[in-house]
Structure formats: structure tokens, C-alpha cells
């Protein structure tokens, strides 16, 4: 037992060192675009972890998780848009000019996502299984069309940001600093997520996944616990969305698309449901696979598709499941 813990610990340590060293190595060998693409990986890993909290631990298969990524991204773009254009976001009941402060934006994004998740969750969580999959998809589609219709913010064409949101001390416009910022936020988020799934609340959520009827008979109001989990996951996705908008300095309604929701699900399943590290691994592998394949062929999706199918059929617990077998030294 101690032996396996150590192995896992060593593995994590190596992973962290690799991630810390990566930007320096990339710059040293003159391939600094790697920093940018790894930043993207880290951001998606965070979104995948937040999705895993509800899909993997709570069996709430949301097919609309991208909606919260999109909301976060738009909060970042809109608030800074208003500062730059010097038009108040709203005038009533008080005038608010928007902001370029990343910390404040993160906070607002989480609040907005939580609010939307609370409202949509109240309805969605009345349904189960396939109906839940579809109703979450429907809500994401609604937001997709809503943002297409917002002409002020570019409608279908999206909104270009004039530089990244700012932080004190850290220069977010520097790609390397921004990479470390994302790595730091992801690391903090992983720790929070691990605590969460291992807490009393986490146990309740897992109980709801395994046997909701029994949970109710035990005296749990499962609806509120599931709703809370749904809201928590949404705030995580919103943070990823803010970072994503800042990374690309551009947002468009495509962020709400079912395709992105699908990709997030793929990352979670690929890595292995119900494990925080699995979601991270899934995101890394999926995006790297995408990049490697697309380096060789324009038609990379043609090959990625069958690979995904192959993984589903033959690696039932995802990649983390395979890895765990090796780390534990036995089945």
C-alpha cells in the first residue's frame, strides 16, 4: 500500500517537474509555440476536471458543459470590451464600467456561471439519464443562439479582446507567465477537486450516482446535493473559460457549441471516469493526439475517430484505468 502510494507520488512529482520545465525547454530549443498549445491543454484539463466532478462522480452526464466555458469566456471578453470602449456595462441601479482585472473577472464569471447553472439545473435535474443529457444540450444550444444574437458583442463573428486581462505583479501578456498562471490555477483546482470528492459532500454525490433511491430512503435530499454539485462544476468550467478567452484573446459563440461539450466528455471518458487525474490525462492525451495527427495529415479526424472507438471498446476504464493497473502493479 505504502509502496503504491509512493509510486503514485513519484509519478505526480515527475509530471509536475516536466510541466514546470516545459516552457524553458521549449524556449531553449526554439519551439515556443509549444508553450501556447500546452497552455490550451492545461485550460481544457481544468474544464475536463470540472465536468468529471458531475459526470464521473455524480453520474450527471451533461452534454452542455461547454456552455459554462463559454459564459466564462464571454464574461472576460465583455467586461474588458466595456472598459476599452468606455461604455458602461449597465447604468441601473448603478453605473458599472466593466473591468480588466483578472481576479475580479474570475469572480464575476464564477458567479454568472453559478447563477445560470442554478436556474438550468433546477429544471434539468428533474430528469435522469438520456433526458438529462438532452436537456443540458438544449440549454447550451439556447445560450449559443442567444450569443449569436448579441450584435453588440459581435454576434456570430465573436469578439476580439484587446489584450489579456491584468493581474498585479504577474505580466499576463507574457506567454510564459500566463502558462505558469494556468498551471498554478489548474494545480489549485485539482487539489480542491480531490478534497471535494473525498469529503462528506463528495461521498453523498457518489452515493447518488450508485443508488439514488437508497440515498433518499436514508434521508438525503438528493436533488439539492446534485444541484450543488452541478453549480460547483459550472464555476470550474467558467474559470477555464476566462482563461481560454485570455489565452486566445478572442471569443465566439462556438464556445457554447455541442461539439466542444462533446470533446470535453470525450476527454473525461478517455481518461477514465471518476478520477480527477484521469480527466487531466484525458485532456492532455486528446489534445496532443489532435495536434500530432494534424501535423501529419489534414484529415486527422478521420484517424482520431477510430482511435476513440478503439479506446472505448478495449480500454474500459479509460487510460487512467490502464495506468492505475501499472502503478498498483496488479489488476
Amino acid at each position: 500500500m505504502i509502496f503504491t502510494m509512493n509510486r503514485k507520488f513519484i509519478f505526480l512529482l515527475i509530471a509536475l517537474i516536466v510541466l514546470m520545465a516545459l516552457p524553458f525547454v521549449a524556449e531553449a530549443i526554439g519551439e515556443s509555440y509549444v508553450i501556447s498549445s500546452m497552455t490550451r491543454v492545461l485550460i481544457f484539463a481544468m474544464a475536463a476536471v470540472s465536468l468529471d466532478l458531475i459526470v464521473g462522480y455524480g453520474a450527471m452526464v451533461s452534454f452542455g458543459h461547454a456552455a459554462f466555458v463559454g459564459l466564462g469566456a464571454y464574461v472576460a471578453a465583455i467586461l474588458s470590451f466595456h472598459v476599452n470602449e468606455a461604455i458602461p456595462v449597465f447604468n441601473f441601479p448603478f453605473s458599472y464600467d466593466g473591468s480588466n482585472n483578472l481576479l475580479l473577472i474570475l469572480l464575476v464569471a464564477m458567479l454568472v456561471a453559478a447563477l445560470v447553472a442554478a436556474v438550468t439545473g433546477l429544471i434539468s435535474l428533474r430528469t435522469h439519464g438520456i433526458h438529462f443529457i438532452m436537456i443540458t444540450l438544449a440549454f447550451a444550444q439556447m445560450l449559443y443562439y442567444l450569443f449569436i444574437s448579441l450584435d453588440t458583442y459581435g454576434g456570430e463573428d465573436g469578439l476580439l479582446m484587446q489584450g489579456r486581462n491584468q493581474l498585479p505583479v504577474i505580466d499576463t501578456s507574457d506567454d510564459r507567465s500566463f502558462y505558469f498562471l494556468c498551471l498554478f490555477i489548474l494545480a489549485v483546482y485539482i487539489v480542491l477537486a480531490l478534497r471535494l470528492v473525498n469529503s462528506q459532500f463528495g461521498r453523498v454525490i457518489q452515493g447518488c450516482k450508485l443508488n439514488e433511491k437508497r440515498m433518499q430512503a436514508l434521508g438525503f435530499n438528493t436533488y439539492w446535493y446534485r444541484l450543488t454539485a452541478y453549480i460547483i462544476a459550472a464555476t470550474g468550467a467558467a474559470v477555464a473559460g476566462v482563461l481560454l478567452a485570455n489565452k486566445t484573446e478572442y471569443v465566439d459563440p462556438g464556445l457554447f457549441s455541442w461539439h466542444l461539450s462533446g470533446e470535453l466528455l470525450v476527454m473525461v471518458i478517455l481518461g477514465g471516469l471518476g478520477s480527477i487525474y484521469g480527466a487531466v490525462i484525458g485532456a492532455i492525451v486528446y489534445l496532443l493526439l489532435e495536434q500530432i495527427l494534424s501535423a501529419y495529415t489534414e484529415h486527422w479526424m478521420f484517424y482520431l475517430g477510430p482511435i476513440l472507438i478503439f479506446v472505448v471498446i478495449f480500454a474500459r476504464n479509460g487510460l487512467y484505468g490502464l495506468l492505475q493497473k501499472r502503478l498498483n502493479g496488479h489488476a
Binding site: R195, Q200, F201, G202, R203, M215, G219, Y225, T228
Partner: peptide, 13 residues
Amino acid sequence: AHHGHSFYFWAAI
């Protein structure tokens, strides 16, 4: 289930 609510997110169970 009978210890009041379970909205404890941090402490290891």
C-alpha cells in the same frame, strides 16, 4: 444522513 446536512466540502471523510 442523520448528522444534519452534508454540505462539508473540505474535510477528508
